[in-house]
Design a protein around this nucleic acid. Structure first.
Length: 314
RNA sequence: CGCGGGGUGGAGCAGUCUGGUAGCUCGACAGGCUCAUAACCUGUAGGUCACGCGUUCAAAUCGCGUCCCCGCAA
């Protein structure tokens, strides 16, 4: 079977590798164009491109995947199946119709829940206990195709985006192999999604990472876990952006009086405890703009920070 | 050449504007106090101040160049 693989982010890499390991023929890897910008001048290469180069696969990077040139290029390869995993562009029906069989997609949620670009982040931020991966037959509507297979995974209390992404990407890879095999044997089943249960997981914006200290400690904790990597849960301290990478909810006896949310309740040698709308949060790892990520202990060693000061929203 | 912050003993920072024996907090090590301790007290070690060139009697500090790290923006 002649496969063309579409993917860009890290999440797609295990899928690509597993397909190769299973000796499937991948005639081309389509990935997002290199971003010629960055800080300074560096150009970014997608994780999938890097992996594909190591495996000496043919790489194609259309600026617009739906344009005529791309369509004729892809047709020329005579593919049987398109496999799309966090590619980053929406494929038009014209493109989806190119392969002889059809196109499938691996999505990091239990569809119809969390259609969209940021299902992993949203699941953690919302405090969900379970999530999973779904393989669907693609249609032009984003993440709306019929379900081919699905696997559920628990989200642990201390899972961060990075951990969960890695876990789900492995599940996706395993499921993908099963899906491809079932297609080869023509034994797959398709179940339409229940449209009444659709929820969306739109791409995160920078501002989604802004911490609102009036919220309960648990919600802020989830935000921190879900925003690790990008955009990072952040607040402000002394006019500087401060990202919180790691924290833990602190069970403490009621002080007897109300501490304003965002105020530093206690600062000692190796912890900073912040009051929230409900409960306290002990910061464990943070990063100030211009500086690298560090443990609170190190931050405290070099900063005159004391109880009573505040973290605020700009 | 998108904007900006930074590179100072093991870690995090001050000092740079207003050149002149390198400082703070933490850690390490040694000793002390203590029933005991991550607490407290005393002492010790550890730095060519990212790199190169220049200005100067004298450069962490001023000028020029290079490398590296990071925030924003994409």
């Amino acid at each position: 079977m002649n496969i063309i693989f579409f993917g860009s982010s890290q999440f797609a890499v295990p899928c690509l590798k597993v397909l190769l390991a299973a000796k499937h023929k991948i005639s081309c890897v389509v990935t997002q164009a290199d971003k010629e910008k960055g800080r300074g001048l560096s150009l970014g290469v997608t994780a999938v491109k890097a992996a594909a180069e190591l495996c000496n696969l043919r790489i194609y990077q259309p600026r617009q995947v739906n344009d005529g040139d791309t369509v004729s290029f892809l047709k020329g390869l005579n593919p049987d199946l398109f496999i799309v995993v966090s590619y980053g562009q929406i494929l038009s029906q014209r493109v989806l119709d190119i392969p002889g069989i059809f196109s499938i997609n691996a999505h990091a949620s239990l569809l119809p829940k969390y259609r969209g670009a940021a299902p992993i982040n949203r699941a953690i931020i919302n405090g969900d206990k379970i999530t999973g991966v779904t393989i669907i037959k693609m249609t032009e509507r984003m993440d709306a195709g019929a379900i081919m297979m699905q696997k559920t995974t628990k989200i642990k209390e201390n899972d961060t985006f990075i951990i969960l992404e890695e876990k789900l990407s492995k599940d996706a890879a395993a499921l993908l192999i099963e899906a491809v095999n079932s297609i080869e044997n023509n034994k797959y089943k398709l179940t339409p999604q229940d449209e009444s249960k659709v929820t969306l997981a739109p791409k995160l914006k920078k501002e989604d990472g802004l911490i609102d200290w009036n919220k309960p400690a648990g919600e802020i904790y989830n935000l921190i876990r879900g925003c690790v990597k990008w955009p990072g849960a952040f607040t402000y301290y002394k006019d500087k952006l401060l990202k919180v990478y790691k924290a833990r909810i602190l069970e403490m006896p009621d002080a007897g009086y109300r501490i304003p949310a965002g105020e530093l309740f206690r600062v000692d040698k190796d912890s900073i405890v912040v009051a929230t709308g409900n409960g306290n949060l002990a910061i464990e790892e943070l990063q100030v703009e211009g500086k690298r990520r560090m443990k609170v202990r190190d931050f405290i060693a070099g900063h005159k920070i004391c109880a009573g000061e505040k973290f605020y929203k700009k």
